[in-house]
Write a protein that binds this DNA or RNA. Structure first.
Length: 563
DNA sequence: ATCCGATGGCTCC
DNA sequence: TGGAGCCCCTCGGA
């Protein structure tokens, strides 16, 4: 197979097909056949495995006869760890993952090919299902076209992609990061929540200062929002069943609501809060739980307002809530019942949704577009982003489906495609990628920038030192900055040219937190490892860590991935 | 180096 | 409807 290049605008990274993969079958023969009796056919090998697997009552007799005849030869023929059949083997060959050919494509879920040859991987816009031509000219759509569409400039501006890590805190959290939120007015403050319930307040202009509040929640922080009338206060919804309201300066926190006042009575009664948003027009915090219910808390009185409303299938998790930025009466919810739903806040009762957007799998998140609020973008575990171009039009099917790898659901924070809040054309979204690519010998998981109006991959950003998956990403509301939560670490990305011109005092710093500092010092290179000669040194208060820039074609990766 | 476990959703019965 | 068992690229700690 000829090497294939991925179609992309920026950065230019040539993906070389790992030649190991192409000779994998011959490798199998060479590496795994331990027989001394010469070559053996596939069927014989299979028979041998079967025999080993079904050793019955006569096994001792057979063994003794064979012992007398000839020395025992044990076949070490390996079987595929996925389908348990011999002849092929799924797993990493170097930094390239070889799929089991017996399974449907891991990326697009269609049978007949593997991820390696999936057309969506070779050219990502291949899988975009275009918007159907509809003739639905209703009055609402007419109003929308006249009043709202005119606010959007007809020509898309050039995208600015933050693609260089300018600072990072390694192991800032003690468990994996679950959510991020930029401060609404202070440009350099990033909030992060983790699986343990801790909330970090990171000033990425003062990288060395670590501030993590540990007493706010007892388990997963699922969503955070700032109080729109007091940006020193932040609300957080947690799987401990509480909404917290915390003063960012002091860390003093109060609980607005507790769904488990009697403590742990078993998993069937424990309520967890997932989706959350604030509606500043109506002065309420909206939260939803793992049993399908929506709750509202008045922000002025801090009292629960009204009764809980069943908005998704009873007993299913409601993972996302989003208030429309322009129409305060519109609410969008999504959950594990495979639906995203549009609601009228004035008529909130079970079964009265304005629209039900069906997905094939769990919906990780659903967001209105950030400026006009007239589009919807959802991330579903069926490896597809879905776009509805106009919420006032026909909602029966999405305008576009974009195949994208983000379906791993266990042990990882769910991936969420996030709008770029600065993009006036409302077409740029960012989302981490689950599947890895072989970038010059390292298996890296890029963060993708996708033009959701075309399905085209605008950019994939990665850094050779970030070998973990980055499911949590958020774009800055005003600056060209991307924040990433990857495992327990936080990263701040800026555009290359910009960060080279505007050097801030702590720019380019990496701080390693926690008890495993020595281990990470080795990993990131303190002179003792073979990380190559031309890395950029990042000096930070008496320590000297190295972090290589994201490179384009000449990218090299100091740390080979061993699997 | 290797193993293990925390975990969530899905399918099958 | 509910429980058992399964699962395909994790990640970090013992």
């Amino acid at each position: 197979m000829a090497p294939q290049t991925r179609r992309m605008a920026f950065p230019q990274v040539v993906i070389e097909r790992d030649t190991d993969s192409e000779r994998s079958s011959s490798d199998d023969e060479d590496d795994f056949d331990q027989e001394e009796n010469g070559p053996q056919s596939e069927s014989e090998a299979e028979g041998e495995v079967t025999e080993n697997g079904s050793r019955g009552k006569n096994e001792e007799d057979m063994d003794s006869k064979e012992q007398r005849k000839a020395p025992i030869t044990i076949s070490l023929k390996k079987v595929c760890k996925v389908c348990k059949k011999p002849g092929h083997e799924a797993g990493f060959k170097g930094a390239t993952y070889i799929d089991c050919p017996m399974k449907p494509c891991f990326l697009c879920k269609m049978p007949g090919h593997t991820t390696m040859t999936c057309p969506h991987r070779v050219a990502t816009q291949y899988g975009v299902v275009p918007a159907p031509q509809r003739n639905t000219h209703n009055a609402l759509e007419y109003v929308f076209q006249r009043q709202l569409r005119t606010r959007l400039p007809p020509i898309k501006p050039a995208y600015v992609i933050p693609d260089r890590v300018c600072c990072a805190v390694i192991r800032y959290h003690s468990r994996r990061v679950t959510c991020l939120e930029f401060h609404p007015t202070k440009n350099n403050i990033l909030l992060s929540g983790d699986k343990k319930g801790q909330v970090g307040v990171w000033d990425f202009d003062k990288v060395h200062e670590k501030m993590v509040y540990t007493n706010i929640h007892t388990c997963i922080v699922n969503n955070m929002r700032f109080n729109p009338s007091n940006d020193g206060m932040v609300y957080a919804a947690s799987s401990d069943g509480t909404i917290s309201c915390t003063d960012m300066e002091t860390g003093i926190s109060s609980s607005l609501m507790n769904l488990n006042p009697d403590g742990w009575q078993g998993p069937s009664s424990w309520r967890m809060l997932y989706g959350m948003d604030v509606n500043s027009e109506k002065n309420v915090v909206l939260v939803a739980d793992n049993f399908g219910f929506l709750y509202m808390v008045d922000m002025r009185s801090n009292n629960k307002s009204g009764e809980a409303v069943l908005i998704h299938k009873k007993g299913s998790k409601v993972v996302g809530l989003h208030c429309n930025p322009l129409h305060p009466e519109l609410l969008l919810s999504c959950g594990n019942d495979h639906f995203a739903r549009i609601w009228d806040m004035r008529q909130l009762k079970a079964g009265s949704s304005l629209g039900d957007l069906l997905h094939k799998r769990v919906v990780n998140c659903a967001y209105f577009s950030p400026l006009s609020g007239s589009k919807i973008l959802t991330t579903s575990q069926d490896n597809r982003l879905r776009v509805w171009d106009c919420i006032f039009g026909n909602l029966d099917s999405p305008s576009r489906e974009i195949v994208h790898s983000h379906d791993f659901n266990r042990h990882l924070t769910p991936f969420r495609a996030e709008w770029d809040p600065k993009d006036p054309s409302e077409s740029l979204a960012v989302i981490g990628r689950y599947i890895s690519e072989n970038y010059n010998g390292a298996a890296l998981h890029p963060i993708d920038f996708i033009d959701i109006s075309t399905g085209q991959l605008v950019a994939e950003v990665m850094d050779p030192n970030i070998t973990t998956i980055s499911p949590v990403n958020k774009l800055h509301p005003r600056d060209d900055i991307l924040a990433t939560g990857s495992s327990r670490s936080l990263f701040i990305w800026k555009p290359k040219e910009k960060s080279e011109v505007v050097e801030q005092k702590d720019e380019g710093k990496i701080i390693i937190c926690g008890s495993t500092e020595k281990k990470f010092k080795r990993k990131f290179g303190d002179g003792s490892d073979d990380s190559g000669g031309d890395d950029d040194g990042f000096k930070s208060k008496g320590k000297n860590f190295k972090l290589t820039k994201s490179r384009s074609k000449s990218a090299h990766c100091p740390r080979k991935v061993k699997r």
